[in-house]
Design a protein around this nucleic acid. Structure first.
Lengths: 210, 210
DNA sequence: GTCTATATGAAGATAGAC
DNA sequence: GTCTATCTTCATATAGAC
């Protein structure tokens, strides 16, 4: 029975509250209430609410950097790619508070802006590397303009799909299903895949729909 | 030389400030400062900041409803479609403050949530109607699953492209270029168009790239 | 319709005891 | 490390004069 440090409990509770209620709506009082600690105690561990946000952002940045560190010359299989997408969606969903009120959050913590954009570009680059691998393996037929547009579209979708999805189906809240997002990403790429790639994806897609 | 009513000046200035600074960062004091009127005067015209937001939302809702009122049986040309997309992007951009901090805004003005979702669905339906027109005219070949995924993707892109685009290119602020968005939408549909449709789009695309 | 002055209340943050 | 009490700041909103 390991005792979790208060500092980490604060980070976990904050992340969870930020995601469910939106970062601007979460006060330091709410966080300390949730943990049954005093606001003063919270401020002993973090000198400001912004510090909590920044430390969470650090984690996000680190996890994303690890995930997007795609080797340029490897032959990626569709299964590997699907796994990658699942991890990606899971990670974005875990830090979705960043995306939900992006302008507001980035305006109040403004050193984050550059770093956020860097991550965005890293995502696009990652997709490009992956697609180029598919192209080398002749799984994919796509010209450079199309590739550019596709990778941007994949990045956009990776960022906003979760928000968009929960918004359109209000019913089942909190249940962010990463599968639907992965399915949507696959559909974006589908037209550019060679026939056997398309069949494979069609088969994988059954899992998401069912 | 017509004198613009204070009430309307407040609405215009608010919209402009909301878009550039983010709605949560705009205080009633800032709005009245911008117009060189007193805060008291502002509250004479609107009983709360929320009322301003709601009235702006009303306009957005109305404009969108008009725009998305697509006849179900008409034969839409690609030119008409391109024009439609331009109007759509222009309208979304004019009310982009809604999208920039979506969760925050919708949580504070909660009757907006349902209405916002309704507009979203109307967008998807509109795209479906348009694509079905293309399919009837045999400009487009697409099955029902693909159509569903495509229309959702078009809706997502219509909503978030502007934010995404300004975020990835920080350099040229304030200059939201609708053309790039339209181009991106066309690219999404391109794979499903018959050959002469693809040629037409390729030609139109030159305008956006150049 | 517009102003000045002010009330209200909430959130972020600190001080000092235990 | 944790608590209670308190301070500061600032945005929303109101009152009442002009």
């Amino acid at each position: 029975m390991k005792k979790v440090k208060t500092r980490d409990r604060i980070l976990n509770a904050s992340l969870s509250l930020f995601n469910s209620t939106g970062e601007p709506n979460v006060t330091t009082l709410l966080i300390s209430d949730e943990l049954d600690i005093s606001p003063g105690n919270l401020y002993y561990h973090f000198k400001s609410k912004g510090d909590i946000v920044e430390e969470l952002f650090d984690s996000y940045e680190r996890e994303m950097a690890d995930l997007l560190d795609v080797p340029g010359d490897a032959d990626i299989s569709l299964d590997q790619f699907s796994f990658f997408l699942h991890l990606l969606f899971e990670t974005v969903a875990r830090y979705r508070f960043l995306y939900q009120d992006l302008v507001n959050v980035l305006s109040r913590y403004d050193q984050l802006q550059t770093r956020f954009r860097r991550i965005l570009n890293k995502k696009t680059d990652g997709f490009r590397t992956l697609c180029e691998s598919f192209r080398r393996q002749q799984l994919m037929t796509i010209n450079d303009d199309e590739l550019q547009a596709l990778c941007q579209q994949l990045t956009l979708t990776a960022c906003y799909w979760s928000s968009f999805d929960t918004l359109s189906h209000l019913d089942d809240r909190n249940s962010v299903d990463p599968g639907r997002g992965v399915y949507q990403m696959m559909y974006l790429m589908l037209p550019y895949f060679a026939e056997d790639g398309q069949d494979q994806i069609a088969m994988m897609s059954q899992d998401y729909i069912g």
